[in-house]
């Protein structure tokens, strides 16, 4: 089947087998290997990307289902060498060790901040319940997300624009992740 998908701002048209999972399309066809596969039961969340502005597990979406959609991956976050505030916060707070879960964690963290720009610890933990990490014990991840929230508050600087609109509750594809205008 022929599909057209915009990934990290670039439009791609490809023929894919219907059984191709979105994550395999990203990795094997487009070379977007920043998004990884950690399990086969949709538990680990390592493959999380944004599909039309919402986080999804790209192992549980067929590539054909993404036809006509916009996808943002971990590789589409940084702009002009400038890290997304959530990426920066993960670094600043030592929120990763082996880093395998990190792309999914960052993508889900951005999503949760779009829904709740000022989450307390409980809200962060609940918002990341679909992502497993075996290295960090989550404490620094929680810290990083709250730190990012602080930096992304309105008026916190130009990076904050990339999740603007979250405070009004109106989300659009371009309001999350910085990926898909």
């Amino acid at each position: 089947m022929r599909i057209t998908v915009t990934v990290d701002g670039t439009s791609y048209t490809d023929d894919v087998e219907p059984r191709t999972l979105l994550v395999h399309y990203l990795r094997e066809r487009l070379g977007k290997v920043g998004t990884v596969v950690g399990c086969d039961t949709s538990n680990c969340g390592a493959c999380t990307v944004h599909l039309d502005g919402h986080s999804v597990k790209s192992c549980s979406v067929l590539a054909v289902q993404a036809d006509g959609s916009e996808v943002t991956t971990i590789e589409g976050l940084a702009r002009d060498g400038q890290l997304h505030p959530v990426q920066q916060a993960f670094h600043d707070n030592h929120a990763l060790q082996c880093g395998f879960c990190t792309p999914g964690m960052i993508m889900q963290s951005i999503d949760l901040l779009a829904d709740n720009p000022d989450p307390d610890e409980h809200a962060v933990r609940e918002g990341l319940e679909g992502n497993l990490c075996r290295c960090t014990g989550y404490q620094n991840i929680v810290k990083a997300v709250r730190d990012a929230a602080h930096h992304m508050r309105p008026g916190a600087g130009p990076e904050a624009e990339r999740v603007a609109g979250a405070d009004t509750g109106s989300r659009t594809a371009s309001s999350v992740g910085g990926g898909g205008e």
Binding site: G34, V36, H91, L96, G99
Partner: peptide, 19 residues
């Protein structure tokens, strides 16, 4: 010190064997 390793890991520029 913040980690040198992080840059590639937070941007998806990784070299996992399966990549």
């Amino acid at each position: 010190r913040l980690r040198k390793e992080d840059e590639r890991l937070i941007t998806g520029r990784t070299r996992w064997t399966d990549n």
